[in-house]
Nucleic acid binder design. Structure first.
Lengths: 348, 348
DNA sequence: GTACGTCGTTGGATCGATCCATCCCGGCGC
DNA sequence: GCGCCGGGATGGATCGATCCAACGACGTAC
């Protein structure tokens, strides 16, 4: 390689520099990095010394160009919802970054237009900027999933293909029904019998799934659910008024909610009526948000195992991108229950 | 370009394909994309048609290799702090992604080792994976900043170089002192005179800065501050006990806190003592977290203009990476106050 | 001693966009 | 008519790592 000896210290060393220093060819250095077992021990040693002496690291752009892969994973993020307690994304993003790193991938964030969620995906895909996507906003009835599928773009969804059970793409999800069943059973075990549900509107697949967990738990003990359920928007105000109506008309002793946001609404209503959350009426939320953790009384909440979700997502990605491809269908993980004071004492 | 006519539809078109179709050379296509004003109108039109017909988008890896820039910005994220109300990062990340997109950049997330925060930076830098960094965790007394500076790595800090006022790198920060002064003045205007401060330990530059805003506001009205300040760890429990001690020993009628987490601790203490937050004792927090927004009573809080911070950060980055380089020193933005019920009524 | 297979190594070609020096062509001045 | 000028277009070289076919050295077998 004809490189000026006294080159700028800002120019990183290349594979050719290492080869020259170690007295071998470029390919041998490449093998030392990517397939060390192809080299003889002493040669490998010599090359590795040269690498560390020069502080060599492969140039990403060159590698990407040749191998047609960037080792980047695209993740679309949407704005934080102010005024709610929803903060799943934050925890998930961190777990995903951490897990991806271990698998040799980095996470590339992008934000799509609000109107056209596909725009961001399309650009990144066509410019071969990312190897795959992680799709999180499947609650809409994921147009992304089918679109990406049609483009043969590798992706893993965090969230089931609710509206298309026949979908063949890889997905990972948390069993919301199991979580709500866990929460309801927890309250039943404490002696509650009239447990109300506050969830989302009927067009939300996730909401209906979570609701079914409550419903199942109640029926398993032969308890009625009529008049005990309410479906509203995911805001504190909606939760608050729904709780008021339910308390007046159905006299529940406990609430299970589809979100911490709704549960906060319930806590508001209880306080307004002079009822003590926990002692008088038990409340359980969903997502184990920071709000649930620092509010008084502490809000019991169903916690999604987002670290595990990230591990499964990355494992699915490795299957999609690896050689040979390993098919990876759906994975359903079970959440846990974080018990705090809003669960109240044993009532028996 | 000798490309097989009936090639796989999965292979994206290249610049050479476009050139062939438009009947021009590769360079002309490149100019059409990057310097359209160099072409004659009719040629440009022809090329653009070919581009849209083929759905051409430049290959990122190839461009990166040639231009030695990836148009990626590295951002290190740390785990969410569970059990606190701190969620600044989430909002900032989204704003940064959005603003970067408008400037033609994407955000690459990475997580460093806990022990060695520089490891992640080093790898990305040496492998030329990112063009620049956004450094956020400067509260430690930013070893990153000086390290990156010594490596001549382009970066912008969100946070002042507290321990090194002579630093020459670009930074953007929010004036915490002004924020706390705003909060304190707000309470003073309501008629409070004994306003307590709960902040962080003395070794926190940010904490001392915020404290100075409270101190300044009090002294501006000739009010004493002796015995009214407390410095503790940033946890709900610490805030709670600090509030207890202050109520016993200094009888304040209002609290200004360095964080929403501490403010939540104050709310806890007030409730335990049968005092009504807002009506009996006013409380103001810092960060306008989701917790402040959904808790009861609503927690007044200082809100950092993170959207503006992102804009300034990206603008600084463009200065660093652009031609010619535009020096961009420090920018200090002023936060706003979100007034909620915990501010209480007018007391005059 | 020659032929052969293996392991390790080599130089050249390649990925796709951009940089560079050159070339073409129409217009202008003398 | 000839030479000059400049906007516009051209082909070759380049960025750095990897793929590929071929090559050298060594040991074994005949």
């Amino acid at each position: 390689m004809n490189r000026i000896p006294g080159r700028m210290p800002t120019t990183p060393p290349t594979l050719a520099d290492v080869a020259e220093r170690a007295g071998v060819s470029r390919q041998t250095v490449s093998n030392a990095v990517n397939n060390p077992d192809l080299l003889r021990a002493d040669t490998l040693m010599r090359v590795q010394e040269a690498i560390s002496e020069l502080g060599y690291l492969p140039n990403r752009a060159a590698r990407n160009l040749r191998t047609r892969s960037s080792h980047l994973i695209g993740l679309r993020i949407q704005p934080v919802q102010e005024g709610t307690a929803n903060a799943t994304m934050d925890r998930f993003v961190h777990s995903l970054v951490e897990t991806s790193r271990e698998a040799g991938y980095h996470v590339l964030l992008f934000s799509g237009d609000v109107g056209d969620p596909l725009a961001g995906y399309d650009d990144l895909l066509r410019s071969t900027a990312v190897d795959a996507f992680v799709v999180t906003d499947t609650y809409l009835g994921n147009p992304q999933a089918t679109w990406l599928d049609s483009r043969r773009a590798p992706f893993v969804a965090f969230g089931r293909p609710w509206d298309n059970p026949g979908a063949t793409h890889a997905w990972v999800d948390v069993d919301g029904a199991a979580g709500c069943q866990l929460a309801t059973d927890h309250l039943l075990d404490k002696g509650h019998e009239r447990i109300a549900w506050i969830g989302w509107r009927k067009d939300s697949f996730i909401g209906e799934d979570r609701r079914s967990g409550w419903h199942r738990a109640m029926h398993a003990r032969g308890l009625p659910t009529t008049g005990l359920a309410s479906r509203v928007e995911d805001t504190v105000a909606s939760g608050r008024s729904a709780a008021g109506v339910l308390l007046d008309e159905a006299r529940p002793t406990a609430f299970v909610c589809a979100s911490d946001t709704l549960a906060m609404g319930v806590l508001h209503t209880l306080h307004e009526r002079g009822l003590r959350a926990g002692d008088d009426v038990a409340v359980v939320g969903f997502d184990d948000s920071q709000v649930a953790q620092v509010v008084r009384p502490g809000l019991s909440s169903v916690r999604q195992p987002l670290e595990e979700v990230a591990v499964e997502v990355v494992s699915a990605l490795e299957g999609l991108l690896g050689h040979p491809r390993v098919a990876h269908r759906g994975v359903l993980l079970t959440p846990t229950l974080e018990v705090r004071d809003s669960s109240g004492p044993d009532r028996r």
